[in-house]
Computed example of a mutant assay.
Amino acid sequence: MKKQNEKEIRNIGDITSANNESRKVEGYALVFNTESEDLGFYETISQSAINEETIRKSDVMCLLDHSKNRGILARSRYGKGSLKLSIDEKGLKYEFDAPRTSLGDELLEMLRRGDINQSSFAFSVATDGDKWEKRDNKYYRTITKIERLFDVSPVYTPAYTSTSVGCRNFDDFKKKIEYIEQLEKEIQDLNFEIK
């Protein structure tokens, strides 16, 4: 079972290509303070979760559909390279010129046709870099610190997928909440019997 600080993948942002003549591709790999779809829990990434230091300590590839097997579209090695990453009030933005390769041409064609219009990113959460809570019988996770970025990816099918680290953290949190709720119930039962 994986531990915190291991890779997770989320599909969040939009992606665009400027026009039919341009090879420039840009999009948001992640958007701050936006609640995810149901992952078994709901997730939000705080604006303070990522900064320039995160980019400078990450080797980030731009992949098509998270697949290294097909090659890379662009790369930011510790903040430098063909993939430009920037942080603004909305989220983590990425930009690159699609390479003059079959993969670059495929991406541009799929963008122009509208077959691809969303982005995704792979990341790891820092130790103590998330907070869990339960409200109205639903579980919520707020990511407060991303340790590293692994890739940003234009994706065909937006499906929120997480590795077992998210599930393990969620399961641990859920077990604690269930234990506390059971204790509270037992205390209430004892109080009722005493009266």
Rank of each mutant, 00 (worst) to 15 (best):
149 L>T: 09
150 F>G: 02
144 T>V: 14
88 D>I: 03
126 A>C: 08
69 N>E: 14
89 E>M: 05
87 I>R: 11
115 D>F: 05
142 T>M: 05
69 N>F: 04
111 L>G: 07
139 Y>S: 09
95 E>W: 09
110 M>P: 01
95 E>T: 12
113 R>T: 06
133 E>C: 13
146 I>R: 14
133 E>M: 13
76 S>Y: 02
137 N>A: 10
146 I>G: 12
79 G>I: 03
92 L>P: 03
109 E>L: 15
75 R>P: 08
82 S>Y: 04
69 N>D: 15
143 I>Y: 02
138 K>E: 15
81 G>L: 07
130 D>C: 08
155 V>N: 05
165 V>I: 10
118 Q>I: 05
76 S>I: 03
165 V>Y: 02
70 R>T: 10
165 V>M: 05
159 A>P: 03
85 L>C: 10
71 G>M: 02
94 Y>R: 02
74 A>Y: 13
124 S>C: 07
114 G>V: 15
158 P>D: 09
97 D>Y: 10
105 D>S: 12
150 F>Y: 11
144 T>K: 14
100 R>M: 13
129 G>E: 00
150 F>E: 01
105 D>G: 08
70 R>S: 14
117 N>Q: 11
121 F>T: 01
87 I>T: 12
151 D>E: 15
150 F>P: 07
74 A>G: 14
103 L>S: 01
86 S>G: 09
142 T>H: 10
119 S>R: 01
92 L>C: 01
88 D>P: 08
73 L>R: 00
145 K>D: 12
113 R>A: 03
103 L>I: 10
154 P>W: 00
122 A>G: 14
87 I>K: 12
116 I>A: 08
127 T>S: 14
90 K>R: 04
148 R>Y: 10
103 L>H: 05
80 K>Q: 07
117 N>L: 03
145 K>A: 14
93 K>N: 09
99 P>V: 00
87 I>P: 14
151 D>Y: 07
153 S>D: 03
116 I>D: 05
118 Q>P: 10
149 L>F: 11
163 T>C: 00
76 S>Q: 07
149 L>P: 09
131 K>H: 11
127 T>R: 12
142 T>L: 15
106 E>L: 14
102 S>E: 06
107 L>V: 07
100 R>N: 10
86 S>C: 05
116 I>N: 06
72 I>R: 15
87 I>E: 12
86 S>P: 05
124 S>L: 00
154 P>D: 08
96 F>V: 05
117 N>V: 03
